[in-house]
């Protein structure tokens, strides 16, 4: 028995789409070093399609695996679809996460939205703030995990 599922460990050990895109069309950074996880997402967009996605993450196994999985789920998708990506979908695709690790995976959803929002803003594309609830409220998520056991 390990802390994470095999699927999570696979993405953690072999993260997909790691790195940066020098000439990205949108970049989103969420989280902060204070709370322990930072995720930065880079996107390339052509004709409304996410042609490339890359990420870098400072964070735990849950944060790294969720960002990796999120990039796989949105790469090649239209922006409208990518915006529908939820934390729940990422977590399910990973075969679940321990409850106290869910808040780390929320960052993946936020990072995708933040990158797309950046793309819209750079190109003066009008957007519906409703669709960016998660990116805009980043950090207001429920962070009520207890202290762990100390050894």
């Amino acid at each position: 028995m390990s802390l994470y599922s095999e699927k999570v460990m696979d993405h953690f050990r072999h993260p997909r789409n790691v790195g940066i895109i020098e000439d990205a069309d949108g970049v989103g950074e969420v989280g902060n070093a204070k709370c322990g996880d930072i995720m930065k997402m880079y996107i390339k967009v052509k004709d409304g399609i996410l042609t490339d996605v890359k990420f870098e993450t400072f964070g735990c196994g849950s944060a790294i695996a969720s960002s990796s999985m999120a990039t796989e789920m949105i790469k090649g998708q239209p922006l409208s679809e990518a915006l529908k990506l939820t934390n729940k979908a990422v977590t399910e695709a990973l075969g679940g996460l321990p409850a106290y690790k869910l808040h780390c995976s929320v960052l993946a959803e936020q990072a995708v939205q933040a990158a797309i929002l950046d793309y819209y803003k750079r190109n003066n594309i009008p957007y519906d703030p409703e669709e960016f609830k998660c990116a805009l409220c980043a950090h207001e998520h429920d962070h009520t995990a207890d202290d762990g056991d100390e050894t």
Binding site: G36, C60, S62, Y100, C104, A145, G148
Partner: peptide
Amino acid sequence: SSGSACTSGSLDP
């Protein structure tokens, strides 16, 4: 072991 926040399940290291 580590004293990071994520290992303890709390937000603070």
